[in-house]
């Protein structure tokens, strides 16, 4: 596991704290054409994912790892399909915990 450049678990709200850093998040894909994919974060923010999607078709939920480009966009490096159902509430809570008082437990 590469720990030299860990990706921070974020949701839409937390993304802006990590502009320029490597982040990972899960989005619900709304629309994907060419290099731009739009999706909804687990806390209902609209996010834009730049970079070409993987060769395989995206499922409803996708995890994206990449560098935070701005408050609302990420340059994707890796895409992982997370299936068509996903508990966004839990993931959102996880993001908050990972950036809150238990931050030290996370990379």
């Amino acid at each position: 596991m590469d720990t030299s450049n860990p990706a921070v678990l974020v949701n839409g709200e937390l993304l802006r704290m990590y502009v320029g850093r490597k982040v990972r998040t899960v989005i619900q894909v709304l629309q994907s054409n060419g290099g731009i994919t739009t999706g909804k974060s687990t806390d209902e923010h609209q996010l834009v994912i730049k970079g070409s999607p993987p060769p395989f078709p995206l499922t409803n939920f996708v995890e994206v790892i990449g560098v935070a480009d701005s408050n609302q966009s990420i340059c994707a490096e890796r895409w992982t399909n997370f299936g068509n159902t996903f508990d966004t509430f839990s993931y959102n809570q996880l993001c908050q915990l990972a950036n809150g008082e238990y931050k030290s437990l996370f990379l």
Binding site: D87, L94, L97
Partner: peptide
């Protein structure tokens, strides 16, 4: 059920 289990753990946290 991972989702239910996650929520259970979250609740405990």
């Amino acid at each position: 059920d991972p989702s239910a289990e996650s929520r259970f753990l979250l609740d405990m946290i």
